[in-house]
Amino acid sequence: MGGDSNIELIKDGKRLDGRGFDDFRKPLTLEVGVLQEADGSAYIEWGMNKILVGVFGPKEAIPKHLADPDKATIRCIYTMSTFASLEEHGRMGPNRRANEIGKVVREALENVVMVEKFPSTIIDVYMMVLQAEGGTRVASLTGAAAALINAGIPMREPIAGVAVGKAGGHVLLDIGKEEDNYGQADVPMAFTPSGDIVLLQMDGMMTREEIAKALDMAQEGSKKLFDLQRKAFEKEYAEPLGKKLSLKEEESKVDIHKL
């Protein structure tokens, strides 16, 4: 951020990839129920980001000290594949960045998941970034909310997030990798449909007016993401159950008359 300002991020009112200031990257697709073993799952493609989320639980809290007698404990683990970026081979295992992302996403989810309904249990949310192009935390969060719903875990509201940034002197929705690397600010945010901000981070330099604009832009953007989530569920549950389970059926072709 604040790096090489010689790179022209805005040209003739368009961004590097031809987007307008308040356009999302493409593709932007979300699918739920993509994993067999997880209780709930989602796969999101957002620009070049490809992220898989799996949810397990609510289940017995192990180790025991994680159990909270008043509510479910949510654990959020964010992992990036070693081949997620075009640059060097990444390292396996946790790191400080992944740790912090897990924490802020977990806190956002704890705001809306009805954790009080499942005391002393654990809900695990695993976010796996297969490919990364900037904005993975908000994309992971948007997928995680969908995976939790897919797992049948009750939530007061969905949540969805998008990063607004400042690059080339303009406030831009859904900043991409170059805009983040060479721009002036990055503000990942997540909203509920009723307008509560459940995730907010900021890095860079922005005026108060620009922050106000960023907040508006992100909230407006989140509406598109709620649509995306709703459509994923409409698709998932509109399909006949038999078709949805076809893989499983093929897997477990048991003719009870033959047993």
Binding site: L35, E37, A38, S41, L52, G54
Partner: peptide, 11 residues
């Protein structure tokens, strides 16, 4: 060659 059995793959 390296591998990881991601916890999202199985309980």
């Amino acid at each position: 060659t390296n591998a990881e059995l991601l916890p999202l793959a199985s309980e």
